[in-house]
Write a protein that binds this DNA or RNA. Sequence first.
DNA 1: CAGCATCCGCGGAGATACTG
DNA 2: CAGTATCTCCGCGGATGCTG
Lengths: 119, 119
Amino acid sequence: MRLPVLRALEVCPVEVAVSVLGGTWKLTLVKYLLDGPRRFNELGRLVPSANTKTLTRQLRELESDGIVHRTVFAQVPPRVEYRLTDLGRSLEPVVAVMDRWGAGFAERYIRGTATDGRR
Amino acid sequence: MRLPVLRALEVCPVEVAVSVLGGTWKLTLVKYLLDGPRRFNELGRLVPSANTKTLTRQLRELESDGIVHRTVFAQVPPRVEYRLTDLGRSLEPVVAVMDRWGAGFAERYIRGTATDGRR
DNA sequence: CAGCATCCGCGGAGATACTG
DNA sequence: CAGTATCTCCGCGGATGCTG
């Protein structure tokens, strides 16, 4: 379960960040949104592994956490735009660091698969 | 479920990092281990919200991902020491950034609980 | 197009009790 | 001390189908 913010805070600020950002695809979505606003299906195409339900939920959680702003255009066909708030943009260093570390880990992981690489 | 590394990589390196580090307490454990080696129950005291089973699993996963090294001293009473590997130490910037961001978020969150702060 | 409704399985996380 | 062994809950993430 997602650890409530206040409880995570009792342990450590880093745990707050994990509880808010730890959901699958969340940081990836933020990463793409750092390039500019995106529409729903646009994000879906960028993250093809996530189905619409999951995508919706992650985006809504990001919204209720004040990281993403959701704009609905009253028109047909529907158009919904997602863009980062100031708080969301403040994630840029987080995304950068995680991205770099993840890339390094993956490279190591691939090199290691022949030798060992965990079960 | 934890997203397999190779699959996460297909989407984005940042997702690899999340899948490896996203487990509850993991980054907190790493943060404490950055201060030096720690014994099992020592970590348990530092992260009182985690029970032994969870603690064990997170540490084992960190071990099999090459982030933590586990040393068993053959003696009574048992003594097991956890310390970071080089890869683990490479997480320092990640922890630092996440910690700072989490602290900022928490502060914002607390200020906002009266006004809004999500249900 | 951007979703919501519904159903489901898996496994993460915890509680509790026990052991070498 | 440093874990295992069970049992349980529950909610994330996914699949599928429908709607304004």
